[in-house]
Amino acid sequence: MAKLDQSCDICMNLHVTKSASVWCSECEEAICEDCEPRHRIQKATKNHKTILIEDYQELPESITKITLECEDHNQKLDFYCSIHSEPCCARCVSEKHKYCRELKPLPEVVDGVKSSAAFSELQDRVNDMSQAIGQMIQDKTHNKSNLEVKKKTLIAEVERIRKAFNSHMDTKQGELLSKIGETKEREGEGDIIDSLLSKLSKFQAKVDEIADAVMKTKQYASNFQTFMGVNKWTREIGNQEKEIIAFQSDKSMANVDLQIKISPILKKFEKDVSEFGKIMKIEVNYSPRMKLVLRKDKQGQGLLAPSSKTK
């Protein structure tokens, strides 16, 4: 993103607009190329250090907002109170810090801060924190990638088991249908039973015919006719009895039945299908999370170490 063109503050006071080339942190002003030589030789500013305006614009906003002017009294901050950890102007000292014994000149306090142990430690802690977070991001990214691969593997495994189960059941279904087909073929698709029914129907018709003749003879025939009829029908009914007894003894008269024997395991599965979930289930395991160890607490440890407890 392009930086905004900074105007020279000195020229702006003269109602002239010029692009600034440097920034003076002590004056807190942007200075153009024309004004910069005067700023460099004037008694009040000759010891001020300037930086390129491009470098100043690289500073974060939280830093550029920090000024040498007291927000409460609009005066220059000249002192620093170590007790309250805050810079002070002359009025701040007289109003809020007159009993503080840790007041020091602000230039003395900030001198050499960039090469101080505190600044160096801050840099180290920031770098360590950045590395730790980077390692966490790398670890979780790797975990996410592995998890996606594992999901696909588990889905494929479940699919394989399902297909194997379906294939086995399809085979068993085929075997059962084949057995049923063999039974139908052996029974002539019901022709044998139909033939038996036809013969039995003829026996029934013959016996019914004799029964009807006997009844009508009893009602209307003479005794002589009845006597002769009884002899005739007794022989006929005897023949029918012999045929029925012989027919009943034939193996083809045995009733045919079909049954399926189901394993107790499958019966249990059919009765309580929820049990199937216990045969195969997905487990989600959590490894110990990585614990961040701050530089001040490290004492020779690595920055990241497994935590002894997980939540």
Rank of each mutant, 00 (worst) to 15 (best):
M1L: 12
K3I: 13
C8E: 04
I10K: 03
C11S: 03
H15F: 06
V16Q: 13
A20F: 01
S21A: 09
C24I: 05
S25Y: 10
E28A: 02
C32R: 06
D34Y: 07
E36C: 10
R38W: 05
R40E: 01
Q42S: 09
Q42Y: 13
N47S: 11
T50I: 03
L52E: 15
E61R: 13
I63N: 09
T64L: 02
L68I: 12
C70Q: 10
D72V: 09
K76A: 14
L77E: 06
I83V: 12
H84V: 10
H84D: 15
P87W: 05
C88D: 07
C88K: 14
C88F: 10
R91Y: 03
C92H: 06
V93S: 08
H97K: 12
H97S: 08
Y99R: 11
C100R: 08
E102S: 13
P105G: 02
P105S: 00
L106T: 03
P107K: 01
P107A: 08
P107E: 01
E108P: 05
E108W: 09
G112K: 08
F119M: 09
F119K: 04
E121L: 14
E121M: 04
M129P: 00
S130I: 12
S130M: 10
I133F: 12
M136W: 02
I137K: 14
I137L: 14
I137R: 15
D139R: 07
N143Q: 06
E148K: 09
K150T: 13
K151T: 01
K152H: 10
A156W: 00
A156H: 13
A156P: 01
I161V: 11
I161Y: 04
K163H: 07
D170V: 08
K172T: 06
Q173M: 11
L176R: 09
S178C: 09
E182D: 15
E185G: 08
G190K: 00
I192V: 13
I193N: 13
I193S: 05
S195L: 08
L197S: 10
S198C: 11
S198A: 14
K199M: 08
L200P: 02
L200T: 06
V207A: 12
D208N: 14
E209H: 14
A211C: 01
M215A: 14
K216N: 12
N223E: 13
F224W: 03
Q225C: 02
F227E: 14
T234H: 06
R235N: 08
N239P: 00
Q240L: 13
I244S: 02
F247P: 09
Q248H: 07
S249Y: 04
S249A: 13
S252Y: 05
S252E: 05
V256S: 11
L258Y: 10
Q259V: 03
I260L: 14
I262D: 02
P264S: 06
P264E: 11
I265Q: 10
L266F: 10
K267P: 00
F269R: 04
E270N: 11
K271D: 08
D272G: 01
D272T: 11
F276T: 12
K278Q: 09
M280I: 12
M280D: 00
E283P: 00
E283H: 10
V284E: 07
V284C: 12
V284T: 15
N285G: 06
Y286E: 12
P288H: 06
M290G: 09
K296E: 14
D297R: 07
Q299S: 04
S307H: 02
S308V: 02
S308K: 12
S308I: 07
S308C: 03
T310P: 03
